[in-house]
Design a protein around this nucleic acid. Structure first.
Lengths: 240, 240
DNA sequence: CCCGTTCCTGTGAATCCGCTGAGAATGAGT
DNA sequence: ACTCATTCTCAGCGGATTCACAGGAACGGG
């Protein structure tokens, strides 16, 4: 598997997902399990607190809109159980202004709905990596490397052969997904599911389009690293 | 992690937060834990004294308005336990000035509500650094340096290429936050949460505005150091 | 070699995002 | 009270970005 995150004991990182919308919680859990993490989920605040107590997660994904109590209350209770656990908040796009104030203060982070799974996973990895207290990153820093291509998740910088390359936000996410799965064929459907937000309703050929953009930026005039597997998908691998 | 503060023994710096408003105490605790400090909190004067006795913090954040006793009384009792501990007072904006002056006579400091987390953290770091008795700074002084840009947290002096630059209070805090996280993309939400006060309810584009101000002052006519990552945030890094 | 399928990419439109000027509101100093 | 500095709102501009569409290229099976 890819560069794996492990907790001090050696077991997989534990993540608690708290969301009352079952399909969404399911989607998230799937994506996080795919990362090799141990995932448990709760549908309300009370369940979240109970689960936090016995499961003792290394990170929490928390929807700020819950049926029984609001996000802040849940946060307080969670912190009562696990003072140092980093939290990734899920919030509706229009609620961004008022409620979020202070939430990211402690190094926590948030993503707005509708989000892409890559974004959630990336933020979560960042949180876990930085909260050195609970979980430790093993052989893992913010730099992805494939051949002479590098992508820094902290500074959002991309370079090939030392030369910096400017990418747009979507291009960046796509490349990050490819680079986190080097030498592996990723289908257009997989890419769409991971890199685009879950409510994207557009044409499937955006993936081809963005692959095209990426190639122009990272593969022109050099041995190509992005390869097409006709009928299957795309993969990235070091030149050769 | 960033430049970390450690106490003589080698453990993390200990801070006691005393405030009866739970959410505020929570917010502060989060921010201070994020600094890598060991934080404990109390909701009233009696609890504060009790906690001080066993926890023996290296610094105290103390709200001067407490339900059971007033700030002066608490201070006296605290000093009974820990004669040399530095104290950062939290006070309402309209509080009587000379009162505060009396309290801070001995090298203590204060901030007025509503405060920004950056401000509290900075003051606290200053207090701890100067009260050499309890805690020591390791790899830590008051000067932030990024390329040819320097910022002195003590004197509030900023210079680029040796040439002094005048910044307003908000500009200074913003630049300090950027410089304490060099080469790291900081989202507008993160910036808002750390640099603006916790009750700020304004437009998110103040951040853009102040970035604009900063650029005018530190980036005009030189290789720019403040960079925009469209859709992600801002980061500061040495020329390039 | 032909043909259907799959993939690539130019064009252009709509939208989003960030930058900045102008000026109101607030506060501090004299 | 007056002046100046500072903070912040608002609104418009302009460029960046995203995406649909469609024609053409490449591929591969027969």
């Amino acid at each position: 598997m890819r560069n794996q995150m492990l907790r001090p004991g050696g077991g997989p990182v534990r993540v608690l997902v708290v969301d009352d919308e079952a399909p969404l919680a399911e989607l998230l859990s799937m994506a996080l399990r795919y990362e090799g993490w141990d995932v448990r989920s709760a549908g309300d605040g009370a369940g979240a607190v109970r689960c936090a107590r016995e499961f003792r997660p290394d990170a929490v994904v928390l929807d700020v809109m819950l049926p029984d109590m609001d996000g802040l209350a849940v946060l307080g209770r969670l912190r009562g159980e696990l003072p140092d656990v980093p939290v990734l908040f899920l919030t509706a796009r229009d609620a961004v202004e008022d409620r979020i104030a202070g939430l990211t203060a402690g190094g926590d982070d948030y993503v707005t709905k509708p989000f892409s799974l890559e974004e959630v996973v990336a933020r979560l990895r960042g949180l876990i990596r930085r909260s050195g207290t609970a979980a430790v990153a093993v052989r893992d820093d913010s730099l992805l490397v494939v051949g002479d291509l590098t992508l820094d998740e902290d500074s959002h910088e991309v370079a090939r052969g030392g030369e910096g390359i400017h990418l747009t936000a979507t291009e960046f996410e796509l490349l990050r997904f490819l680079m986190r799965n080097p030498r592996r064929v990723l289908s257009k459907a997989q890419i769409l599911d991971r890199v685009w937000s879950y409510d994207f309703g557009g044409q499937a050929n955006v993936v081809e389009l963005y692959i095209s953009y990426l190639r122009r930026k990272i593969d022109t005039g050099r041995p190509p690293m992005i390869h097409t597997r006709r009928g299957a998908g795309y993969l990235i691998k070091p030149g050769g």
